[in-house]
Amino acid sequence: MAEITADFVRQMARTWHGIELDPAEAEGIARMLQPMEAAAESASAHLDFDSEPADFTRLLDELAGEE
């Protein structure tokens, strides 16, 4: 996939949120997003079709030890 760029961040800010970012701020945000996006893309490959967020709450009870 293409890398997230400062221009792309500025376009999203303008289009979705009505925020006008200066180029330096957009560049900083793009640099933050790049490794996060790469890690998420890799990790999401392991997501099961039937997964949903509420599974986590149920899991806490399931994995609780005896106290």
Partner: peptide, 23 residues
């Protein structure tokens, strides 16, 4: 602010991955 610039699917993927990592 960085949270404004990610697709909603990414967010839901990450939240859904918690179960797998925690287990």
């Amino acid at each position: 602010e960085v949270g404004l610039y990610q697709p909603s699917t990414r967010y839901i993927e990450v939240i859904s991955l918690r179960e797998r990592y925690t287990r």
